[in-house]
């Protein structure tokens, strides 16, 4: 089964060609970070303009690199949410047109399901079905969720953030510290050699949680950003060298401690075969070390994706789409797909 997948939900334009389950023939990612950096965050209109400009070329290049012809493709997959509406529309338009032209099934993928499948793209990883059930901590610029993965397509949402995502908390912290964008990597760099215990920032433990979720497994990062703001007002030197490394390390530690604490609780309650962490924030080395420590403590093997599959990419969308094939009897081959900016993921 050869799948062509398109991902344009945020600020990465990506096209992949995958022979399922994991012979990845092409995975092209055009990252727009440089265009958004001057604004300290993703500007939707810049993202959309960039997708329109880059996507056609990436499609041609991906198919050329795959060694396959257009006629060898068995399905076209695309992210239909969550994400920026006007950015999603570009990928959705290309995917629907290609599926129509090639007369192949069109498969809609939830971006967060894509992140789950990113854990299984690497050849050294177990097969998805052999890892079940597993606990996944999804940490990206826009999302922070704890999910129990029961089977392909069966995802139980255990906890999530009530306000900012971990990646957003890092972006906002980096902005306050004058470190630039994106926050994750610049804070990680600034934190090197710093003492993560030097400033005690809050771990954002919600006391109430909507949608029937257990507050003990949920996150809140808005107070952390405010705490940093007040800390910098009281001690302006904290944003200057040599204090900066300690401040950055402590801030980053607070973001990650919250992730580790809630994951530890989830691992206590849920009997799972693996513990995975995916999404752009999972590239961070300090977080990886803390996750490995937790996994060793509880005796559950840890799954991480190589960094190239952690940030947004179409390879993970192709991998997630493959589970929909062959199409169920009676399933619409060319469903009409609109953008779903707030597409939910997982059942509580």
């Amino acid at each position: 089964m050869n799948l062509l997948a398109i991902e344009t939900s945020c600020d990465e334009t990506s096209v992949a060609v995958l022979t399922a389950p994991r012979q990845l023939r092409a995975n092209l990612v055009f990252t727009q970070i440089a265009k958004h950096r001057p604004y300290g965050g993703v500007v939707p209109e810049i993202a959309s303009r960039c997708h329109v400009e880059e996507l056609p070329g990436l499609l041609r290049q991906a198919v050329a690199e795959s060694g396959l012809g257009w006629g060898d493709l068995d399905a076209v997959a695309v992210t239909h949410g969550p994400g920026l509406a006007s950015a999603l529309l570009v990928g959705l338009s290309a995917a629907q047109a290609l599926a129509l032209r090639l007369a192949v099934p069109l498969l809609a993928v939830n971006h967060l399901e894509g992140h789950l499948y990113s854990l299984f793209l690497d050849e050294a990883a177990p097969a998805f079905n052999d890892a079940l059930p597993f606990l996944a901590l999804i940490v990206s610029g826009g999302h922070t969720q704890l999910v129990r993965v029961e089977a392909p397509g069966v995802y139980r949402l255990l906890g999530q953030t009530l306000d900012d995502a971990a990646g957003e908390a890092l972006d906002k912290g980096a902005k306050l510290l004058g470190l630039g964008y994106p926050g994750g990597p610049v804070i990680e760099r600034a934190a090197q050699g710093g003492d993560p215990q030097s400033v005690k920032f809050p771990r954002g433990q919600p006391t109430g949680c909507a949608g029937g979720l257990e507050p003990a497994l949920c996150f809140s990062y808005s107070g952390l950003k405010t705490a940093l703001l007040y800390h910098l007002k009281a001690q302006p030197a904290a944003a200057q060298s040599p204090e900066l490394a300690h401040t950055a390390a402590s801030y980053q530690e607070a973001v990650f401690e919250a992730l580790i604490e809630r994951s530890a609780r989830a691992l206590e309650r849920e009997r799972v075969k693996f513990f995975g962490c995916c999404g752009g924030v999972s590239i961070n080395k300090r977080l990886r070390a803390k996750l490995a420590e937790l996994a060793a403590q509880v005796g559950v093997p840890l799954l991480l994706a190589p960094p190239k599959f952690c940030t947004d990419n179409a390879a993970m969308i192709a991998a997630a789409a493959a589970r929909q094939l062959p199409l169920a009897p009676g399933a619409e081959k060319l469903p009409r797909l609109d953008a779903h900016p707030e597409l939910p993921f997982g059942e509580a």
Binding site: P56, W70, V90, S93, A97
Partner: peptide, 12 residues
């Protein structure tokens, strides 16, 4: 954007 992207994908 939809029109331009769709036309290019159909033609590709």
């Amino acid at each position: 954007r939809i029109a331009l992207t769709a036309a290019q994908a159909l033609a590709m």
